[in-house]
């Protein structure tokens, strides 16, 4: 309880029943923490908006908004996720407002982006033996394991830019198909193909690095 009343909280510690506001203020006074957070938010915003200047504005607004309502925070984790929630809303507003005016010139379409699914399927379109999806045991417990979220974020990072961007618009900001197509200036079929590939990559990455990785250890 009173352990945070002296001001700065011990890093990585927080207490649900403690002094959340003081805790949050302490985090916001930690320049290293703040800089790390800003970098993450910036990366997320650039990926979504495809425009560095706009992204900086959105991040700035989100940080200011968060500072204003700092008393409602509940520990470091909540602070971070709350900031992302504000940022997400700002990005969603911007994307909706801009509609088709969003420029996509900044989106890099690398060869990797267009890597085909040939590695996964044979000529007849059947799964190659080594690539067949396995049964994922106990995804529920993964959600409650912070190591899982590290793997998840690492897998997200590995998605090519356009795939990551459209996937995040769909799954994190929860835009519908017409909104995404308008905001990102892609056709419906283009979106469908891109989301399919993103999901294929993501599921493969999660399977190899989490759901199967555990089994391999157990078998060893």
């Amino acid at each position: 309880m009173g352990e945070y009343s002296g001001g700065k909280a011990a890093p990585g510690r927080s207490d649900r029943g403690g002094e959340p506001a003081v805790d949050a203020v302490a985090h916001l006074q930690d320049p290293v923490y703040l800089e790390g957070l800003r970098t993450q938010m910036q990366r997320f915003a650039v990926m979504q908006l495809g425009d560095r200047g706009l992204a900086e504005d959105a991040v700035q607004e989100a940080l200011l908004g968060a500072l204003k309502s700092v008393r409602s925070f509940n520990g470091r984790a909540a602070l971070k996720t709350w900031m992302f929630a504000i940022l997400k809303n700002k990005i969603a507003d911007l994307l909706r407002a801009r509609g088709r005016q969003v420029e996509v010139q900044s989106l890099l379409r690398t060869d990797e982006e267009h890597r085909d699914l040939d590695e996964l399927f044979n000529d007849r379109g059947h799964w190659r033996r080594d690539e067949r999806p396995a049964h994922w045991a106990d995804p529920e417990s993964a959600i409650h394991d912070r190591h899982f979220w590290q793997v998840f974020e690492a897998c997200l990072d590995r998605l090519p830019g356009q795939q990551a961007r459209l996937f995040m618009m769909r799954e994190f900001i929860e835009l519908e198909t017409p909104e995404i197509c308008a905001a990102a200036d892609v056709t419906v079929s283009n979106l469908n193909v891109t989301l399919h590939r993103a999901r294929m990559r993501l599921r493969e990455c999660l399977e190899n690095n989490w759901f199967q990785a555990g089994e391999a250890v157990e078998e060893a």
Partner: peptide
Amino acid sequence: TLRKICRSYARRDVDGRDDESLEN
């Protein structure tokens, strides 16, 4: 499952409570 995972990831943003225990 992937969609549930993404929703959880997003819900952590709004709620943060679940995240508390995850972080600590």
